[in-house]
Each structure stands twice: as structure tokens, then as C-alpha cells.
Simulated scan of single mutants.
Amino acid sequence: MIKHHPTPALLLAFTQGQLGASLSIAVSAHLEHCECCRHKVLALQETSAQYLDDDVELDEWVDNEMIAAITDDDYEIHPKQSMPLRVNLKGHEYTLPRALQSVGLSNWLKLGKLARAKVDLNEGEVHTNLLHIEKGGTIPLHSHKGFELTLLLAGEFKDEFDTYVPGDFIWLNDANTHSPSTENGCLCLTVANNSMHFVQGLSQVLNPIGKLIY
């Protein structure tokens, strides 16, 4: 069962078209998995006009400063109608969210049991990636210099906070430290505005090149 969802503020911004491309895609992809949030979005769509008529500003709804800082991007998403896009990684075929079908993907960059493909959105410091972790893979213990959103698309992983299933929408910031690992492999969509900071053992040698791998 999905336990981690976008905040009400983020869902409201989504319904009002106020999110940048990366977060709009991430929320859309979450909605493909989550019936609960789909109902919430429908309810917000029905009521948002009333709040706007009453001159209620979006900022009054926002309970997260980071959300407020990234909702001023006027990029609009116009998804194409097409068959689901599929990728094959390590013998596993994954169907990607419909929201990704209108954007480009880079070639995959492999780092041990990890592989990343950049999603071409041109949002400056905000980078969006597909992240594949192979069976038995672990990301060393790290914190985040900015925010990191992880949407689990397929498989499972766990960290110090929980065990996650497809559709979980996990928002972390510089106050969080964790080490994700997976027994059977997983595919995630990640959005971040700065690099990871490794905090333990030999992995710390990666910190000088952290900008290259977020």
C-alpha cells in the first residue's frame, strides 16, 4: 500500500498549473499509481475556482518553503497520447509513466549497481533522472544539499525511514540522512536541486564529483 504522497499544498499547486515541469511530471506519475490522490485532485479542481474567486493566494496554502520556491516556473507540460514507453534494464522490462512520453531521455550512465538516465527538461539546477538500482544494490549513506524527491516506479527499496512500494512519493531535504537499498531491484524517478553528500566511509571520496551524479 502506498504510504507516501504529495502534500495537499503540492497537489493544489499541481491542479492550478503552478508547478515546474519536473514536479508536474512526478505528481502526474504518482497519480497513475494512487487512486486516493486522484480523488483529492478531482476535489481540488472542483473547489479551486471558488478559492481563487475569494482572492485566496496560493502562498496561503503552501506549508513548505521549498515548494514555494519552485512553483514560479511557467513551463507547461503537454503530454502526447501514445503507447506506454518501455525500457529494458538488466533483463527487466519496465513501463514508464505516461507523463514521461513527451520528454527525452539521455543514454544510461552506469555506476556500479546504479544506472541513471537524465530526463531532458532544461530546468537549470533542478535535475530529473530515471534511477535504476540492480538487485542487491545500495546507495551509500548520504544527506542532501537541497531537496530530493524520489517516486518509486517499480520494484521496492528500503532505507532508515521505511520500506517503499511503487507509487510512494518520498520528499527529503538537508535534514535527512539515509542509505537506500533493494533486494530485488527497483526503478525510480528522482528530482533534485543539488548533489548528494556522502557522509560515511570510502564513499566520501565521491563528494567532489557529486555534481556529476545528481
Results as ranks from 00 to 15, higher is better:
Asn129Arg: 11
His178Arg: 04
Asn107Ser: 11
Lys158Ala: 03
Ala68Cys: 06
Lys135Gln: 12
Val126Gln: 04
Ile170Val: 15
Leu130Ile: 14
Val56Cys: 07
Glu156Lys: 03
Trp171Lys: 11
Asp53Leu: 13
Gln18Lys: 15
Val199Phe: 06
Tyr51Met: 11
Met66Ala: 08
Leu141Asn: 12
Pro140Ile: 10
Phe169Asp: 01
Leu23Glu: 12
Met1Lys: 00
Asp120Glu: 15
Ala21Phe: 10
Pro97Ala: 08
Gly137Asp: 03
Asn64Tyr: 09
Ala29Asn: 09
Trp171Val: 01
Leu44Asp: 11
Ala117Tyr: 02
Ser195Leu: 05
Cys36Arg: 11
Lys3Tyr: 11
Glu134Gln: 15
Phe157Gln: 03
Gly112Lys: 09
His197Ile: 06
Gln50Ser: 12
Tyr51His: 10
Gly124Asn: 12
Leu153His: 03
Thr138Val: 14
Cys37Asp: 12
His127Asp: 11
Ser179Lys: 11
Leu114His: 06
Val126Asn: 02
Lys3Val: 04
His78Leu: 05
Asp159Cys: 04
Trp108Pro: 06
Pro6Asp: 02
Leu42Ser: 12
Gln101His: 14
Leu206Asn: 10
Leu89Arg: 10
Cys37Trp: 01
Gln101Ala: 08
Leu149Val: 07
Ala68Gly: 08
His78Val: 07
Leu44Met: 14
Leu172Thr: 15
Leu189Trp: 03
Cys186Arg: 01
Gly91Phe: 08
His5Val: 06
Gly17Arg: 00
Leu105Lys: 13
Asn207Tyr: 13
Met83His: 05
Ser179Phe: 01
Gln16Leu: 13
His142Gly: 02
Leu202Ile: 05
Gln50Cys: 08
Leu131Thr: 09
Leu111Thr: 15
Ser22Arg: 06
Leu23Thr: 10
Asp55Phe: 12
Tyr75Asp: 02
Asp174Met: 14
Pro8Leu: 09
Ile70Ser: 01
His197Glu: 09
Leu152Trp: 01
Asp53Gln: 15
Asp168Cys: 12
Ser82Leu: 13
Gly146Cys: 04
Asp174Thr: 12
Gly112Tyr: 08
Ser28Leu: 09
Lys110Pro: 11
Cys34Val: 11
Asp59Cys: 08
Leu96Cys: 15
Leu151Gly: 13
Cys37Phe: 05
Asp59Gln: 13
Lys90Ala: 14
Asn107Met: 06
Ala13Gly: 02
His132Trp: 13
Ala29Cys: 10
Leu58His: 01
Glu35Leu: 14
Glu57Asn: 03
His132Pro: 07
Asn207Cys: 05
Ser203Phe: 12
His144Tyr: 05
Val62Met: 08
Glu156Asn: 09
Asp59Val: 13
Ser179Gln: 12
Gly210Pro: 07
Cys36Val: 10
Gly20Lys: 02
Leu100Ser: 00
Glu156Leu: 02
Ala29Thr: 08
Lys158Thr: 08
Lys118Ser: 10
Phe14Gln: 03
Met66Cys: 08
Gly91Arg: 03
Ser181Gln: 08
Ser179Ile: 02
Leu121His: 02
Ser195Tyr: 04
Arg86Asn: 09
Pro79Ser: 11
Leu10Phe: 05
Ala43His: 04
Cys36Thr: 12
Gly146Trp: 00
Ala175Glu: 12
Glu125Ile: 14
Asp74Trp: 00
